[in-house]
Structure formats: structure tokens, C-alpha cells
Design a protein around this nucleic acid. Structure first.
Length: 215
DNA sequence: AACTCGGGGCA
DNA sequence: TGCCCAGAGTT
């Protein structure tokens, strides 16, 4: 298992490799961000970003999403996949915002997770990006990278990965952690063919050393 | 723990 | 073509 100093070194290397990595879904207001992150489940942000300009122009408030027939909203988000679930969730979520939160997006992770279509990962992203609440969002990239490097254990659950990261990374770096690890995981430490040959972290990477021995 | 939703991107 | 993907809900 890596110690705190080694993990911070990893973050520095991530930053060096992808200096411009930042949240691609950073929208001007919390409501649009929430919708964008809900839409991004199981597809890339780049794909979601293709439709958000038109979408957010047409739908500005929770009321707007409830004002049109469900089928119309489905058509508007069809190109990103999983559109029936997502359309249904967005309407349900909009209704909850009106009923329980005065039409505003709640700040806390717990309140966010009570919304339809919002799981732990989405709640953490919205809380940290929109409200600067302390949180680290763990998705498949963050989980894979953490396990390969040895930041956490192989058998750790997503929740355990999150707790380990929060314990070992200083709070002022939490907000950057998610996006740095995602870029590293998406473009370098890929799921199927990680580029260990050209990796600056090979010396301390548990999985990398194992893979290089095999060759 | 396994299954479903799903069109787009990529090899 | 076939496989995978910045997940969440249901069974």
C-alpha cells in the first residue's frame, strides 16, 4: 500500500501529464450541472456536451422539464443512450426539487443522493464542483487506478476506496483528485491496455511491475 | 451479485 | 461487426 507522500507524488505526476484536466461538465449553475452529470452516466462527457447547449436553452428550470410530454424529453436526449431511464429520472428529480427543496439544488451529499438518478458518484461530483463541499467522487477510472497503483486494496469496495482516498489525501486536494485520476485512467492507465512502458509511476506501481515482469 | 438500459466511439 | 463506456435502480 502506498503512503501519503507517494500518493501525493502520484497526483503531481497526473497533473504533469494532463495539466489542463478539469471537470468538463462545469456549468454555470448547479441545476444544469446536476442534469449534465445525471446524463453522463455510462457515456463520455464529450457526448453529453454535444446536446447540453440546446438542452439548457430549452429547459432552464425544473418546471420546464415537467412542462413537456415525457416523449419529447426522451427525443431531446436520445443521442446519448439510456435515454428512457434518464428522461424519467430527470422528471422525477425535478418534481422532488419543487416538492422538497423549493426548486433549488440541495448542497449536501445526502440530500443529493435522495434524488432520482443520483447515486453516490453523481452526488459527490455535484457537491464538490457546484458547492465546493469536501468530497471525492469514485467512478470506474478512479477505482481502477487506485487499485492498480496500490493506493487501496484490490478487494476494496467503492465506498472503501473513497474512504481511503479521503484519509490519505489532504483535504485541499480532494476537488482535483477526481478529474486528475479520470484523465490518467482514461488516456493512459486504460482498462484494457495500460501504457506501463511509458509510465512515470512504474517504480511504485504494484500492478505495473507485475505486468512488466510477465512480458 | 446480476441484470437492464442504449446510442456512440473505437478497433 | 463487436465490444466497451465519467452509473443507478431493481430483483
Amino acid at each position: 500500500m502506498l503512503n501519503k507522500k507517494q500518493i501525493e507524488y502520484c497526483l503531481d505526476v497526473f497533473e504533469e501529464m494532463f495539466p489542463h484536466a478539469e471537470c468538463e461538465l462545469n456549468h454555470s449553475n448547479p441545476f444544469d450541472l446536476l442534469i449534465a452529470v445525471v446524463l453522463s452516466a455510462q457515456c463520455t462527457d464529450a457526448l453529453v456536451n454535444k446536446i447540453t447547449k440546446d438542452l439548457f436553452e430549452k429547459y432552464r428550470t425544473p418546471e420546464d422539464y415537467l412542462a413537456v410530454p415525457l416523449e419529447e424529453l426522451e427525443q431531446d436526449i436520445r443521442s446519448i443512450g439510456l435515454y428512457r431511464n434518464k428522461a424519467k429520472n430527470i422528471r422525477k428529480l425535478s418534481q422532488t426539487l419543487l416538492d422538497k427543496f423549493g426548486g433549488e439544488v440541495p448542497r449536501t451529499k445526502q440530500e443529493l443522493e435522495s434524488l432520482a438518478g443520483v447515486g453516490r458518484k453523481t452526488a459527490n461530483v455535484v457537491a464538490s464542483v457546484a458547492f465546493e463541499e469536501p468530497a471525492i467522487a469514485v467512478d470506474t477510472h478512479v477505482e481502477r487506478v487506485s487499485k492498480r497503483l496500490g493506493i487501496c486494496r484490490w478487494k476494496d469496495s467503492v465506498l472503501e476506496v473513497e474512504k481511503t482516498l479521503m484519509r490519505k489525501i489532504p483535504k485541499e486536494r480532494w476537488s482535483e483528485t477526481h478529474h486528475r485520476m479520470i484523465f490518467f485512467g482514461r488516456y493512459h492507465c486504460k482498462a484494457q491496455r495500460p501504457n506501463c512502458e511509458e509510465c512515470k509511476l512504474l517504480d511504485l506501481c504494484r500492478e505495473g511491475k507485475k505486468r512488466m515482469r510477465k512480458r
